[in-house]
Amino acid sequence: MGIKVVKRHGSSFKDKLYLPAIAGGMKTTLKHFIKNLKDVDNLKTMQYPEVQPDDLNERYRGVHRLTKWEDESEKCVACYMCATACPAECIFIEAEERFDEKAEKRPKEFKIDLLECVFCGYCVEACPCDAIRMDTGIFSFTGDKREDFVLDKKALMKNERSKDLDND
C-alpha cells in the first residue's frame, strides 16, 4: 500500500535522559554570559526605570488622549466609530446632546480600559474628527487597583502630546 514506517527519534537511552540537550543549552548560556562579562559596555540592556527610553518616534503608540478645540471643549462627536473599530472592545461611550455650534452630540462619558486595550491604533484610524490620538509618549502606566487603569474623559483630555514626539 505504500506505507512507510518512520523510526521515532529519541528512543535511545541517551536521548531519554535529556542530559546532552541540557548540557548544550547550558554551554550556550555560559558562552553568552562570559562574552557579556568581558564587554559590559556593549550590553543592549536598559536599566529601566532609572533610564527611560529615548528612541520613541512619531509612530509610537502610547496612552490615549482626547484632543480639544481652542475653547478647551472636546473634539469628539460621540459617533462610536472608535468603539466599533476596537477589537478589544475596551472603549465605552455614552452620548449627550451638544448645544454649541460644533456638533450635534458629544460624549457624556468616555472611558478606555487600558488593561483590555491592545494598543493597535484602530481607534485613531477610525475617528473621523481626529479626536482620539495615541501620541502622549506615556509607555508605562501603573496603578494599585483595576479602576486606576480605566481612563475617563477628564483624564483623557488631561493627557498631552509628548514634547519628544512633537515635530511641529
Rank of each mutant, 00 (worst) to 15 (best):
A131W: 06
D71R: 01
E96Y: 04
D100P: 04
A78H: 03
V124S: 05
V40Q: 01
N36Q: 10
K7H: 13
T45V: 15
E96T: 12
P87R: 04
E97S: 08
M157I: 09
A95W: 01
R59M: 04
A88I: 06
A126R: 07
G62A: 06
G24N: 11
S162A: 12
F119N: 10
R133N: 11
L66R: 01
M46A: 10
L151G: 08
D113L: 02
E125I: 11
P49T: 08
K163L: 10
K68M: 13
D54M: 09
T84Y: 08
T29Y: 10
Q52E: 11
G121E: 10
K154L: 10
Y80P: 00
P49V: 06
A95K: 08
K108M: 14
E50L: 08
T84V: 05
I93D: 07
K7C: 07
N167E: 14
F99T: 13
D15K: 05
S162K: 04
K4Q: 13
S162R: 01
L114I: 13
L156M: 11
I112V: 14
F33Y: 14
D135G: 03
I22T: 06
R65K: 14
G62P: 10
L66F: 04
L37P: 02
P128W: 05
K154V: 15
A126V: 06
A131T: 04
C123L: 04
K105E: 12
E94S: 11
C129P: 00
P20F: 01
C120E: 07
V77N: 06
K108T: 13
L114K: 00
T28P: 00
I3G: 00
I22S: 03
M157W: 10
D41E: 15
K31C: 05
S162N: 08
R106E: 15
G2I: 08
V63P: 00
C129V: 02
A126F: 09
V150A: 08
E50D: 11
C129D: 14
G121H: 04
V51I: 12
D100L: 05
D144W: 07
L37T: 12
D130A: 10
C79K: 03
M1E: 14
F33D: 11
F99H: 13
S140C: 07
P20I: 02
